[in-house]
Design a protein around this nucleic acid. Structure first.
Lengths: 402, 402
DNA sequence: ACTAATTTGTAAATCGGCATGACGAAATAG
DNA sequence: CTATTTCGTCATGCCGATTTACAAATTAGT
């Protein structure tokens, strides 16, 4: 027997709940719900044996979850084994829905996801938002949200909360956009400009993208580094299945990691920041292209066409990313690095040089670098799923709000 | 006592204990013990009001803690207010002791710390360990440990566990030293070479130093970056009051963060790693000095004497540290950076250039950099206190082992 | 086909742990 | 000396999970 190690995080379903008997009950409700969701239709007995409670206890917990509309009984299982067959339980497809929304530089989007994780409705509107003031943009977004909520309600769902992804830094209050350079917003409280009838959470798109990767990615570990980029280069650090946010909530800023300490001056005051080698603007300039609406698409197109200057620019950006990530990987020892967001579209041309640089600078086996399968949808999905997750982690909090 | 506790996982107050009524009880025992320890002698009623339980509940918890020898009754408080005076409770000075030990490059040390946090016995032996094989070194260390344990037992304490700090990477099993370049050890299981009658934890000295800073430092926040160095440059990341360990347990490697990507080749395979600018060997070389026994002392002495080449070498090392820390600070957004371990002795000459570089490269207010007050003792103290902490975090686990 | 064995789900009784309310004890205030 | 306040403890009750028991629904064995 060894003395306990000190771990980084509590993490896990409902760890923030109070240490009372009610808190225990709420945590156990969450465990039952999670188990049923993650391991397909299960009988009460199967759930009980998995989470270590007795069948009787699980029965009462399941009763409560069914009464709340979070679980539903599918009827008797087809018996394959000896003994009385159980009654299959599944997460309800008509319970609460998580509403996600996204403010992109070139688009707005919203969607609704049910408890099972299925996207039940979706709405997108293209259009440049750079420089537009928050009011009109969010009015448009609100319209999309209403649309998506209406569709979800038609299918018997009710909205449990709203999460909005923005391309910028968000204060720890999860409402205020401190700085979004690509939009030109600063210190904007989104709480006053969005539907007030839903619990609201606002966060950085890189963070939501990382969470999407964590929850939906195929074989994504619980400790990884998620790199995404629109114009700045954002990263999100996932430790033990949770986001590392930092004191001010600004953790994950990768764009201003020094890559060449004596390089050109940067707006941040430093020199040779990563953003000047791998930022969208820098790459476009190096490739000899003019910024336009769909910048990433432009780069990807030219690179696919074999434009050598574009390819070289992307190769160099990959190398710069590799240098910056070496530092991050050394410091955090993640299980993998995932390229997500808009970056995933450019991955074929970034990856080789990035991997090479990272491998060269690492003593042992290099940290594996992969590309998100979610692509640019990650942030939106992550937002919606974060609401669903909140329900799963504390079902009692939303029960009876139907 | 419960049998199936195959959860050798951690404990924080309310963290990883099972979600049962017994788990709740254990968390509440921990809360009472922590409260009494942190807020001086308290009556049962005072504890109750602080942690939100009733006096009756606290009474039974206190009874159990007293029976286990973790708390003791000091007798009636001197009444200053109306009402019956309470009976003051304090953490016992004759309960379990945490045994800490340290394998340094130039010394061995051990100490015993009681539940109150007081160091009750200590033993140090100077002598170079570089290149010596683990067996004899650990035999010597075992002797120191026996000595320290004997002294502690004379004072009525009993050893609750042993924690050993080593200058190298430790696997997640907390027993195996994967690589300790300064000692020349690799893949060494310390479990077989140290006293087997105590629960053992082995960890990196930088990690223990960070924990010491967290637990004993004056005003240390719950999110910070702790930088220390013997020959390599280690950092430890503390997030939300816990250590970030990484997948393999190697998190915190700062020495091989690229500072000048085109710089000289490094043993790790990369180029221009921090270690080549701020590592002990590099600094000695830059200062034109020969390595000897007390390298840090030598540098500090010369710098204090006004040796300009030494001062310049340290200034440059500070600048390099600043570049590397810029990346780390951007990525993690810690509340502060703390220089600890041997580095703290050189701080006066490192800090100005380090702070300047960090401030220059940061857009907003720079992350404050401070020096640990614990100095080179941090690791040893952190080790001993980690054992004490484990007891405080789950008193029931050790109760009745006296 | 009939019985034995196995498994499920639920109901009744029990237990562990904290809350509530009441009480004696020990101090201060008037 | 009495009223008031606070402390520590006891008896009681509540809540949630466990234990025990049992009926229901299936397969295995004869």
């Amino acid at each position: 027997m060894t003395a306990p190690l000190h771990e980084a995080r509590p993490a896990g379903p409902g760890r923030a709940l109070p240490d009372t008997q009610q808190g225990m009950r709420r945590r156990n409700l969450a465990r039952v719900l999670h188990t049923v969701r993650d391991e397909g239709p299960l009988s009460r007995a199967a759930v009980a044996s998995r989470i270590g409670l007795t069948r009787a206890a699980v029965s009462t917990l399941v009763d409560e979850l069914i009464r709340s509309g979070l679980l539903e009984e599918l009827g008797p299982e087809r018996p394959g084994r000896v003994g009385r067959p159980g009654s299959a339980l599944a997460v309800s497809g008509r319970g609460p829905a998580g509403i996600g929304a996204e403010v992109g530089v070139d688009h707005l989007a919203a969607c609704a996801v049910d408890l099972r994780g299925t996207t039940r409705s979706r709405a997108i509107r293209q259009g440049a938002n750079r420089g537009r003031s928050p009011g009109p943009v969010l009015a448009e977004l609100t319209e999309l949200i209403r649309q998506v909520v209406a569709e979800a309600e038609d299918e018997g769902l009710w909205p449990a909360g709203l999460a909005v992804a923005v391309p910028g830094l968000v204060a720890r209050d999860a409402r205020t956009v401190v700085r979004a350079p690509n939009l030109g917003w600063h210190d904007t409280d989104l709480g006053t400009l969005l539907p007030a009838d839903l619990p609201l959470t606002v966060d950085n798109e890189a963070n939501f993208g990382a969470l999407a990767e964590l929850w939906l990615g195929d074989g994504t570990p619980r400790d990884f580094l998620h790199v995404s980029a629109e114009i700045g280069i954002g990263a999100a650090v996932v430790v033990d299945g949770g986001l590392l946010r930092g004191t001010r909530g600004f953790a994950g800023e990768l764009g201003h990691v020094p890559v060449r300490p004596d390089g050109p001056e940067c707006a941040c005051g430093g020199r040779g920041c990563l953003e000047q080698y791998a930022g969208e603007e820098a790459v476009l300039r190096a490739a000899g292209l003019e910024p336009d609406e769909d910048r990433v698409g432009l780069l990807a197109g030219r690179a696919a066409d074999g434009d050598e200057s574009v390819r070289r620019a992307l190769r160099d950006a990959g190398t710069a990313l590799g240098v910056a990530l070496t530092g991050a990987v050394n410091l955090l020892d993640p299980e993998s690095v995932v390229l997500g967001g808009e970056l995933s579209g450019l991955a074929p041309w970034l990856l080789p040089s990035l991997r090479e640089e990272l491998a060269r600078r690492t003593a042992g086996p290099a940290c594996p670098v992969s590309v998100s399968g979610l692509g640019p949808q990650g942030a939106l999905l992550g937002a919606a799923h974060s609401v669903v997750r909140a329900v799963l982690d504390d079902p009692a909090a939303v029960a009876g709000q139907a």
